[in-house]
Amino acid sequence: MSDKSEQQRLSVFKTYKLYVGGKFPRSESGRVYEVTDSKGGTWLANAPLSSRKDARDAVVAARKAVPGWSGATAYNRGQVLYRVAEMLEGRREQFAREVADAEGLSKSKAAAAVDAAVDRWVWYAGWTDKIAQVVGGANPVAGPFFNLSTPEPTGVVAVLAPQDSSLLGLVSVLAPVIATGNAAVVVAAERAPLPALSFGEVLASSDVPAGVVNILSGRTAELSAPLAAHQDVNGLDLTGAPADLAADLEAAAADTLKRVRRPSAEVWTNDPGTSRLTSWLETKTVWHPIGV
């Protein structure tokens, strides 16, 4: 044990893959791109450079998951989401390392971000069976009618994850989408996709049904255009959209009247409120006569 090189073990690199339909495919294009640390120097890994077709496949997977997930009980969704938090908690160290690399944070700050992400996820897990009571309710119409408004998921939501916060930002935009019963197609932060891709593994090892969350890495500009125009996408979260593209993406989304959440500056550690939940909810109002 005198030789230093004998003491060093050659580490096993991880092949980062997409997470689509509950599986971990490579990009159908066969392309990858280099991911470096936040300073742009050190190579961290190759990430799949997803194509338009990968985006299309992800939408198909998401659509397929909608009936089951939106039809699951709110309690069940809460249980599943909480399980995700448990899995994430168990991999804190891995994520702290990935976040530190991705965002150039100190170990302690990265660990704090991961903790915040776990807590954020737990927060949303608890919302699944409460949001309907907060935003829905009985309407006192002037007539012999039972009238009830309830929130329902919008359907398939394409999410451009924030570029500035690779894990806390990601869970902050993703959790509300699925907590409300939607299925998501997420485009990970372009330069820092590794925590997002690893998060796919967390989801897969939880009880999240296949297709409820689909995670793509690649060029945000390349992937966002087909998603914004896709006719089977119901909602579009532009949080991580490139500033010069946001307006065009919103305009493309107008063709099928998608629900669009515009980009806005956010401090990810702030109380998120309920607006990210209600962004992806429709209000359904049911009337029925009251008579014997």
């Binding site: 119409v141 209000t283 009337w287």
Partner: peptide
């Protein structure tokens, strides 16, 4: 069991 009912309280 009804149709085209409207009310200001009803979204």
């Amino acid at each position: 069991n009804t149709f085209n009912k409207f009310d200001p309280t009803s979204p």
